[in-house]
Amino acid sequence: MARAMNEDERLLMCPENLREGMKLGPIFYVVMPEQVEAFARATANANPLYTSPSERIAPPTMRLQDYGLLIAAHFRGGSGGIHARHRSEFYEPMRVGQTVRTDGRITRTWRKRGKFYFELEYESRDAETEELLVRHAMTAVLLREGAMQ
């Protein structure tokens, strides 16, 4: 049966629905030159690695926000998350034109001083070769029900 267009089966973003081991994703995208240029401009970076036709690699954290897409694909909600900590391991640069797959997993949840924290690990790979490009872990505190900002 076809679903109504406005039907939203995503879980509410709240502590009760964030569980350790929960898998998020995958999401797929192509590394676009427009994004590389826009990101370099926004961060006032003129390194030719990002603009030279012979290089065309993506700035290291250009797709760091993939965590937001992973969360938004699984959860709905208002406002109320704050990014507290971030960790990255870079294996290979993302290159313009490359198709990338990103998968995530909730690795830890805990409460401290009345606040709910969670850690989300996510990694990006070349969608065709599965070569590992980057692995991130972000820690956020959920102030009240709602999605990360």
Binding site: F39, T43, N45, N47, L49, I57, P59, P60, T61, L64, Q65, H83, R85, H86, R87, S88, E89, F90, Y91, E92, P93
Partner: peptide, 28 residues
């Protein structure tokens, strides 16, 4: 916060070169 984080990552590439993207780590 990740905009500040991006500044650090970019700085490391600018200062040390592309080798940072081949095994570099950053935590903040």
């Amino acid at each position: 916060g990740e905009q500040s984080y991006a500044l650090v990552a970019n700085f490391l590439v600018d200062r040390f070169g592309v080798c940072f993207l081949h095994g570099g780590k950053l935590e903040a």
